[in-house]
Design a protein around this nucleic acid. Sequence first.
DNA 1: GAAGTGGATATACC
DNA 2: ACTGGTATATCCACTTC
Length: 818
Amino acid sequence: MSMKLEFNPIDYDYFDFEGRNYAKIIGRDNNGKRVCIIDSCEVYFWAILKEGLNQKEIEKLQKKIEDIQLDVKGRKTKVEKTEVHNKKFLGKDVKAIKIFATNYKDMHDIAGELGMPEIEKRRGYDIGFISHYIIEKKLNPLQWYEIDGEVLNNSLEFGGIDSVLEVDSCIKVDSIKKLEKQNLSPKILAFDIEADELKIGEGEILMISLVSENFKKVLTWKKHKDLPNVEYVKDEAELIEKFVHYVKKISPDFLTGYFTDGFDIPYLKARAEKYKIKLSLGLDGSQPKFSRGITTTARIDGIVHIDLFRFIETAYSQYMSSETLSLNEVSHEFLGESKKEHEHRHSSKINGDEWTSYFEYNLQDSVLAYKIFEKIWPDLLEFTRIMQEPVFDVSRNGMSTNVEDYIIHNLQKFNEIPEKRPTYDEIGERRGRGKYEGAFVLEPKAGLYENLAIFDFTSSYGSVIVTYNLSKSTFLEEPEKDSYSTEVAGKKVYFSKKPGFFPKMLEEVIEKRRQYKEELKNKPDAIKKARSNAFKLLANASYGYLGFFGARYYCEEAAAATASFARQAVKEAIEKTNKAGFGVIYADTDGFAFSLNEKTKKQTEDFLKKLNSELPGIMELELEEFYKRGIWVTTRTGEFGAKKKYALVNESGKLKIRGFETVRRDWCALARNTQSRILKMILEDGNETKSFEYIKKIVKEVKERKVNLKEMTIKTQLKKPISEYKSITPHVVAAKRMIEREIPMDIGVVIEYYISETKEKKKLVREKVKLADEKGEYDIEYYLKHQILPAVENIFQVFGIDINAVLETKKQKTLGDF
DNA sequence: GAAGTGGATATACC
DNA sequence: ACTGGTATATCCACTTC
C-alpha cells in the first residue's frame, strides 16, 4: 500500500540488510503520530586522478577499479560502478572517479586496493553513513518533508524490522519533497534518579522522578505515607521496570535530564544488570548503547536522549555567569529557579517526613530539567538545522565538530570533494608544532578615566578570514603576484584572491548572523535569537577550527595569518583614533577602549563611520558602548599596567568588570565582594573616599573574627587525577582529605576549603587547609595578607595610596600584633 | 633558614 | 583530543647564600 505523509525526522539510525545500508529514521507526522521511514542511498567515494591522463587511460583505470572484488570479514563485496566527474578538490579543478560501493563499511577496504599510480588521492570514504545519507537525500533533521512511500505492515522485507518497532507506521521511502513548514513541538520527558552512592551502580536507586506535559511522578520503593505524585513499588527491581514502563507509555521524542550521559543512564543500566532486568527503552526494545571514549554517551533507539549539560557546555557556557554548570546554578541563570534544599545522607539515616522532602527534591530536579529543555529547545533546533546532523550528535558535539559538519554539508554547492580526517601521525605532527603569534594586547596606563567608549570589530577573526580569503585551499605554497600576504613568524605567507569555499561559507554565516541580529532587533523572538546566536558561535569558532589539530581543513598558516591581519587591523584603528584626538587606553584582540577627550558622542559616532569607510572587505567596527568611567590598575609588582583587568561603569550605572578577582571563582567570597563594592564606589563617585572607609571596616571585621566562615571558602577545581599533580597545592591537599573521609570526588569537581588558624606556626598554606565543612577558625593573617589586601591594593594604588601602610598590615607578621 | 626564581596550576579575556 | 593564543596571580619546589 502506498501512502503520502508529512514527516519530520528526529532520530537517525541505520542497519544492514542483504549487504546494503538502510537509513532508519524515526520522526513525527503532522498528526503527531510516530513514524519510521526506511530509505537507502548510493554510497560512494572518490579517486582523484593525476593530471594529464587521457580518455583511454582513464577508461582503462575505471575497468580495473570495477573489477575489484573483496572478501572482507566474510562479506563478499565489489565495486558496483564507477563514473568520471569534473570536481574540485581544495579549490582546484580535478578529474575524479566516483566509486560506488554496496556497503559504506567496505569503502575503506576498497580504497585500500587503489594503489594505482594514476590515482593521486582517495577521499570521501571516512564520512559516516548517516551524514552521507543526509547529504545525498537532503533529508535534514527537524525539518518538514512530504514523504511518498510503501507502508510496511509486518512485512518480511528488511527482515521484519517493522514488526518489532513501536511506531504507528513504518514506510519504505519512494520520494522526498521539502516543505516550508517550520514549527515542531516534540514530546519531552525529563527524569532524574537518586541513589545512595555516586559511583556508578555501587548504591541502590532509591527513587526516580519523571516529568512530562501534564505529568509529574516520583517512583520509589521507600515506603512512606500517601503523597500526591508519589507511586510506591515493592523494590528496586520493580522501580526500574516501572521506569521503563512509563517511558514506553509516555513515549517521548526526547528523553532528557542533567548529567544523564555520565550518571543516570549508566547507573540504571548497572542496577538493571544486577537484577537481570532488560532496560529496554528503545522503540525496537533494545537497551541504551554506550559509546565514545572519554565521556560516555548513552543512545536509545528511536528516542533522542539529550543530556542538557553537554549542550549547555558548548552552546552557552562562555556567555554564562554561572561559575559551575551545576543544575542548580544553570537553573538559576536560565529560569530564575533553584533546586530544593536537601542535605545528602545515606538512606539508612533518613527518617519519617524527611522522605517527603527527598521526594520533592527529586521531583524538582526533573521539573528543572524539563523547563531547561523547553528553554534551550530553540537553540537545539537551530543548531541542528544549521549543522544538518542528527540532534543527538549536535547536542553533544563541540564547536570544532559543528564547524566541520557545517562545512561537510555545504561542500556540494562548491562541487568540492571532502578532505579526509587527519591520520594519527598527522595529528601528532600538528600538535608538535609550536604556538604561533596570536592576539595583540595593548598595555594600559593604570588610572581612573572618565567619558570612554569601546569600539569592537564585529565577528573580528571571521571577517578577517573572509576579507583576506584565508583557508587551507587558498593558501599558496608558491607566492603569486596578485595575492593577499602577511608576515607570520618572520616569513611571508600568501593567499590566493580567487575566493575559496571556506571563506565563502563563512561569509554566508556572518551575513546570516547580521541579518538575524537585525531581524531580532526589530521583532524579537526565541527562534531568531537562537539563529543569530548559532551563527555567531559558528563564526567565532571558525578561526579556532583552522588551528585545531583534528580538523580536516586544518591550516596553521591561515590561522596565524588571521591573527596577524587582525593585529594589524586593531593597531591601525588605534593609531587613527589617537590621531583624531581621542586617547586610546587599552586594547585586546579585536577592540579598544578610549577616552573621548572632550569630544562629543556625535563626534565619536561620526568618527566611527569614517573609520569604517576606510576598512577593507567586510571588516567593520561597531560602537560597543559609551562609559561614564573606567579604572585600570597595575600588575601586582606595580611595574606595568595590567592587561585583561579593568572595570567600567556605563551611563545607567551598570558595571562591567573584567579579570579582577571579583570575577574569579578561586578567590574567597569576602575578597571578591569587598573588591567589587570598592570598584562600584570608586566608579560611581569618581574618587576613593568612601571605599577607603569601607576597607577599614572590613579589615576590622576580619581581625575581630566577625566574618562568617562561609565567606572565607576558596573554591578550586580539580583538573586531573590527584596522583598526577607535581605540585601539591592547597586544593590537592583538600582533595586528598576528601578521599580519606570518603566524600565523593572526581576530576572536574570544585574543591571547597578554607585556610585555618593552627596552633603551631606552619610555613606552607597547604598545611593549614581545612575542608569547607570542617570545624575551625579562619587564619586572620592569611585572609588579610593573601585575600583581602591583594584584591584591593592595586585599586588604591591608582590614587597613590599604599593601603598596606595605612592599615599597617605588612609589617605585622604574627598574630600577636593584631 | 631566609630570599629569590622558575615551574606548575587555575582561571580569565577575547 | 574534541576550537585558538594572551595574560595574571598564587603557591610550591628548588637553588643559593
